[in-house]
Design a protein around this nucleic acid. Structure first.
Lengths: 126, 126
DNA sequence: TGCATCTTCAACCTTTTGGTTGAGTATGAA
DNA sequence: TTCATACTCAACCAAAAGGTTGAAGATGCA
């Protein structure tokens, strides 16, 4: 098999993309965009046991997408966006996309919400 | 749950990232970077049945990452890099990465091969 | 010490995923 | 028509993923 294909099969990309494949884990990453959080607080908005969230966090940590640091009883979770970089490089290699900025990201989120979220009555800030 | 998290859970992102989570499927995408291919030819380098590859192709097509067009007996598979774009936007929203160009991509592939592939004697350029 | 809190572990369950095989369909060629 | 090629379908299987529950460690507090 040609060598570039081996690179595409690299394990680290594997763990990153597999981690991103689960919607709960992507939601967790989005939450951590705003601030570091304790495991309990990460779990809070989800309709799922703490143990399940704990497992998701292990998967994210193994992929390098977050780090966890215990201070006292509390284990703090921190987003590590650098781990996304190699995956991003891989993806952009395909499309030669133009660079994307935060504006694009926010517009993207807004568009997604417009499609999805019809219980969002009002509260639209521009 | 805050609205941005819902966006992070969007189904289309889900299918794209889940599709990318499998190393065989990423390898297929890499192969299609070079040229459109028939299903049989896609399957050829893999140590796996044609039926298995056929299923992978369905997953890639459902994620919008490829399209398939039947001409005669042959079903041609074509890379659709645009589907990667929204995933790329999502990822870049996290890191505010600098734009990446094809050079970066190739350097990335080279570095991966350096780590992995020790039958690669020489060819190390800084 | 005793108790509450934060988190993980272990055992278990169900569903999904990724693979196989053999048969079946569609097309092309002789 | 007959045969070969290109691909998919259906049934099945094993392993992995994602969830649950209850118990068990750590740690902090009174």
């Amino acid at each position: 098999m040609p060598r570039a294909y081996l690179a595409a099969m690299k394990a680290s990309l594997d763990t990153v993309f597999a981690a991103l494949g689960d919607p709960t884990r992507r939601a967790i990453l989005s939450m951590l965009l705003e601030d570091d959080m304790a495991v309990t607080d990460v779990a809070d908005p989800f309709d799922m046991s703490l143990a399940a969230i704990s497992k998701h966090l292990v998967i994210l940590a193994n992929a390098g997408l977050i780090t966890q640091e215990k201070r006292g009883r509390v284990k703090w979770c921190k987003l590590e966006p650098d781990a996304l970089k190699q995956a991003s490089v891989w993806m952009q290699g395909f499309g030669q996309f133009e660079p994307v900025n935060l504006d694009d990201f926010e517009r993207f989120l807004a568009a997604e919400l417009g499609e999805n979220d019809d219980d969002d009555a009002g509260g639209d800030d521009g």
